[in-house]
Nucleic acid binder design. Structure first.
Lengths: 203, 203
DNA sequence: AGCAAAGTAGACCGACCTGTCTGACCACAA
DNA sequence: TTGTGGTCAGACAGGTCGGTCTACTTTGCT
């Protein structure tokens, strides 16, 4: 890890476009991985910096505090998930229920990916439980967005009570996230898809 | 909190039946509340001891380490939940689906109680994610028990595929735990009950 | 060439962490 | 009376925490 600093150019702050510096990116992606695997409070700043190959001052210049770094990680992740999911929805085929089942297919892929170690938003709400704490706020915002996305899909299907069905589907989704992490079994997501199909058929 | 030590008898080790000392109980219930509200790593030993009015040596004599205390809290809680739930099931009325819907009624009561601040088992698995860590093991054991309880109820109903239905119901249950904590809205549990009724009717 | 901006390593800070240890207190039983 | 076992307060140890600061180097732009 350390010999690189003397042999190769440490990526000379390419363009440094406001918020897009390479060091900032390294911090965000390293933080995401370490926090996912070990938890937020369990990972110290120093560990994170060593892993990312970044100096402490850079972190505090870019983010101001550990909690803000966590918030930035969550916001970046929320954007990535949203765009990945909507891209998948755009190509969804199948019957009228295809779009919603595609959400659960996407979920099944997510929990199967080797980078999945539980939902970072749920963990954030657990470790920062106060309403005023930014990580918890980021988690609440993201999960509310998930429910709205589901609700919109239900609405487009002309379901009688779209809000009710969306909330039920959301329960399945969150349950699948928790159980696939807790039992280390991605099958939970496919069971959620099965259950979603039943709820859809009944609505 | 502190004046008691000088004015009243600090409960002179009544009977001290092996594992049932009063101090041990104080530690367990205080720990449960603080961990639930703030998280495991966020609560330091000293805070916990001050709140419980117990000396440090007592904690380490009784439990050996913080992680073992956490494990003991989880095991005690698992026992309480199991007996409370099975007591409820014993008195469950209603149609053939009554027993299973009673589980969700019980859940609705739980998440409505003021002491509810999210599921301690899910939080434990988040903060102690390694397979070898005792809190995570306690969480896995408890959640597996939940699934088995559900499966047994399904089996008694003569459902075609009891394991499959039990897993689906379990997803709803866990989803309700997460969302009622995350959105601070106990309604999640009643939505879970509604969805469970749909799944039952379809099976 | 010269300068400002960004990044560097690492010392440093006070607070807090888990866990150990000492020495005393107190209720009760022999 | 004399243990004895559980508990007490609090000092202590060794580490880690998040965060600040200084002094230096590298970089890109002019």
């Amino acid at each position: 890890m350390s010999e690189r600093a003397t042999t190769t150019k440490p990526s000379p702050a390419r363009t440094s476009s406001a918020k897009g510096s390479a060091k900032r990116e390294a911090l965000l992606s390293t933080a995401e991985e370490l926090f996912a695997r070990q938890g937020y409070r369990a990972v110290g700043i120093d560990t994170l910096l060593a892993e990312a190959g970044v100096a402490k001052m850079t972190l505090y210049k870019q983010f101001g505090s550990k909690e803000e770094l966590i918030t930035a990680v969550l916001e970046r992740l929320a954007g990535e998930i949203t765009s990945s999911l909507t891209a998948r929805l755009a190509t969804a085929t199948g019957g009228s229920h295809g779009r919603i089942l595609a959400v659960f297919d996407w979920l099944a892929d997510w929990v199967r990916s080797p980078a999945f170690h539980g939902c970072l938003f749920i963990k954030a709400a657990s470790e920062y439980p106060e309403s005023g704490e930014r990580p918890r706020q980021a988690a609440e915002t993201f999960k509310a967005g998930c429910r709205e996305l589901l609700e919109e899909q239900c609405r487009e299907l002309g379901i009688a009570d779209p809000e009710r069905l969306a909330r039920q589907l959301h329960l399945l989704l969150e349950g699948a996230l928790v159980l696939s992490f807790l039992e280390r079994d991605p099958q939970a997501a496919t069971h959620a898809r099965d259950a979603a199909a039943v709820l859809l058929a009944a609505a």
